[in-house]
Structures are given as structure tokens and as C-alpha cells.
């Protein structure tokens, strides 16, 4: 096609100044995004400040470390906000312990399983099974926790876990973590159901992380005589380290914050026992089960628990960052 034209030149191209519409829309959009973006700080600050001020008299009443380490919890009936008038005893240790051990049990059981499932889906499963498998995993993640709680309480505990706990107690009952008597509901039951609950989210993320692992490095290892397992262990796992830690943190976060299923399965007592077979309570479950009948003083106690729970998750997050930063560098994670 000829490009020679005898037409007069068209209008000159538009100048360098922007057209009107953009002059309005662009700054507006920028302001909107800036406000929404920075609002996370405001929300976080508002929440922390509010709960901490509400809980402050309790910390004054008990002392902060007294609150964290005390193992008795008796709500008082005072309506005043002067700590001197408080009549209750607020020791959060049993609930910190409950949250800690249930979350730990959950992550210790779920992480290895999730790695295996993700590896199977990604590397070993027949091609036509992969899609259905990963959809199923994601669907499992969408099951409401109350359903897990009911299933755990009415089926899993009586049919599977109780017999297992009885066997465990008869076999290792002398060890302080497995002392009887066996009830059924308790730390271990809650931890096991939590493991099932957080398994899908960890699996789904780990699967994604493994899937984006560069093929050329896997090929390099195969070409050196590595088996599939060795490629998994020595190439994929090290370079997916930060992703796996991230997945674990999400799972742990869910386990720490999970309320309703734990409430149904942990046995709900305010007394503390170190044995995993015993009943107890977790921080989130305690708040959920007490807030309705709480006195004004009791609400402050629960606020204090909320502050402790928040601190707890913050410590976990910082620890995870440090872990990624320390080990990720050594393991050669490309993302660090």
C-alpha cells in the first residue's frame, strides 16, 4: 500500500498538556488510593488503643506479668473503672497455654501433611487428577468452622480420638503431656481438628509456591542424578522456604484466632493442666464464651485477653519474619 498522500496535513497532534478529564480523575484517584492505603494504620491504631485503654485497669489491678502468668480467673462484679475497686482475679496463663498448645499441635500435624499433599498434587499425581484434587483442597478450606466443630465433637472425638487418647494414656500416661484421665474433648482434640482446618489453606499456598519453582533448577538437579524426592528436598523446598513459612503463618494465624470450633472441642474449663489430654480453654474461645454474661469488670478482663491475643500473634509474625530472614538467606531462597 502506498504511503504517499497528497492530502493536507491533519490537525497538529494534541499538545503535551493533559486533557481535562485526566486532570480531574488522576488526582482524585490518587487521593482515594492514598486514603484507603493509609487507613490500615488508622484501623490498627484505633483497635489497639481502644482495647488497651479498656484493659488498662486490669493490668494495673493484676500487674502485666501477673496477668500473663496468673493461673486463676475469677470475674469480679465491679462497675467502677478504678482498679482499686476490682474484686476479681485475672490470670491469663491457662488460656495462653491453651492457645499455644492447640496452635502448635495443629501446625506440627498440618505442615508435614500439607507438604506431602502439595508435593503429590504437583509432582506425582496423574495429570487428570491434579485439578480435581486442588479444587477439593480449596473447597475444604471453605467449610465453615462451626461445621468442623460439630463434626469433631459429635463424630471424630467419640469414634476416633477418644479410643486413640485412651491408648495414648495407657501407653505414655506417665509423661506429663499425656496424663489422664481421658475425657475426649481437650487440648489435643481441639489441636487435631484445628490441624484439619488449617491443612487446606497451607496446602493451597504451598502448592502454589511449589508450582512456581523454576523448572530449570529442577532440571539441573535431575540431570545430576537426583530422584524426585531429592529434587523436592534439595531444590524445591529450600527455594520455597519463605513461601512455606508464609503459608504456615497463615495457618498458625487461623489456628490461634479460631474460636468456635475450639470452643466446642477444648472442653471449656478455667483451670489449668499441662497434660494435652485435659480440658482447658483458649484465649479466643474464652472471650467468646464469657462476653455475653460478663460484668463491666469482666469485659475489661476479656479486653485484656484480647490484648494478649494480639501481642501473641504479633510475636508469631515477627518470629516468622526473622526466621525467613535468617534461614532463608542460608537456604538460598531467591525471594530473600
Amino acid at each position: 500500500m502506498s504511503v504517499i498522500t497528497d492530502q493536507k496535513p491533519q490537525d497538529p497532534p494534541p499538545g503535551l498538556r493533559s486533557r481535562k478529564r485526566r486532570r480531574v480523575a488522576d488526582p482524585a484517584f490518587r487521593w482515594f488510593v492514598t486514603i484507603t492505603g493509609t487507613s490500615v494504620f488508622i484501623i490498627l491504631a484505633a483497635m489497639v488503643v481502644r482495647t488497651t485503654t479498656e484493659a488498662w485497669p486490669i493490668f494495673q489491678h493484676q500487674g502485666f506479668f501477673g496477668f500473663l502468668t496468673g493461673d486463676r480467673w475469677v470475674s469480679g462484679g465491679s462497675r467502677s473503672d478504678d482498679p482499686a475497686d476490682f474484686t476479681g482475679v485475672y490470670g491469663a496463663w491457662p488460656f495462653i497455654y491453651g492457645t499455644l498448645v492447640t496452635a502448635l499441635i495443629a501446625i506440627v500435624l498440618a505442615l508435614p501433611l500439607a507438604l506431602c499433599i502439595a508435593f503429590y498434587i504437583n509432582q506425582l499425581a496423574p495429570r487428570r487428577l491434579r485439578k480435581p484434587l486442588s479444587y477439593t483442597v480449596e473447597m475444604l478450606a471453605a467449610v465453615p468452622s462451626i461445621v468442623f466443630g460439630m463434626w469433631g465433637l459429635f463424630w471424630l472425638v467419640p469414634n476416633v480420638l477418644r479410643p486413640f487418647f485412651e491408648w495414648l494414656e495407657s501407653w505414655a500416661g506417665g509423661f506429663f503431656l499425656f496424663e489422664g484421665p481421658v475425657f475426649g474433648p481437650g487440648y489435643l482434640a481441639a489441636g487435631i481438628v484445628l490441624a484439619i482446618m488449617i491443612l487446606p489453606i497451607i496446602t493451597a499456598i504451598v502448592r502454589e509456591v511449589i508450582a512456581v519453582n523454576p523448572m530449570d533448577q529442577q532440571n539441573a538437579a535431575y540431570a545430576l542424578g537426583a530422584t524426585r524426592f531429592e529434587v523436592m528436598r534439595k531444590v524445591i523446598l529450600p527455594s520455597s522456604f519463605s513461601g512455606i513459612v508464609g503459608a504456615s503463618m497463615l495457618g498458625l494465624g487461623r489456628a490461634v484466632g479460631e474460636t468456635i470450633a475450639v470452643m466446642m472441642l477444648i472442653g471449656s474449663t478455667k483451670s489449668w493442666d499441662s497434660s494435652l489430654l485435659q480440658r482447658g480453654d483458649s484465649m479466643a474461645a474464652l472471650i467468646a464464651s464469657l462476653f455475653k454474661e460478663a460484668t463491666p469488670e469482666g469485659v475489661r478482663g476479656l479486653m485484656a485477653i484480647g490484648v494478649a491475643l494480639f501481642l501473641f500473634t504479633m510475636v508469631i509474625n515477627v518470629a516468622a519474619r526473622l526466621l525467613v530472614w535468617r534461614i532463608g538467606r542460608v537456604a538460598g531462597d531467591a525471594a530473600v
Partner: peptide, 20 residues
């Protein structure tokens, strides 16, 4: 795996591991 150990391979794109 044993075959590949005896018969090494160098790829199109340099692909060192993210290690030392």
C-alpha cells in the same frame, strides 16, 4: 537417575542453584 548421573547435561540458559 543413574543414567543421568553418568550422562550429564548443560542447559541453554545458565541455571545455577540459588546457592553459593
Amino acid at each position: 537417575a543413574e543414567v543421568r548421573r553418568r550422562i550429564g547435561m548443560v542447559f541453554q540458559k545458565p541455571n545455577p542453584f540459588p546457592k553459593s
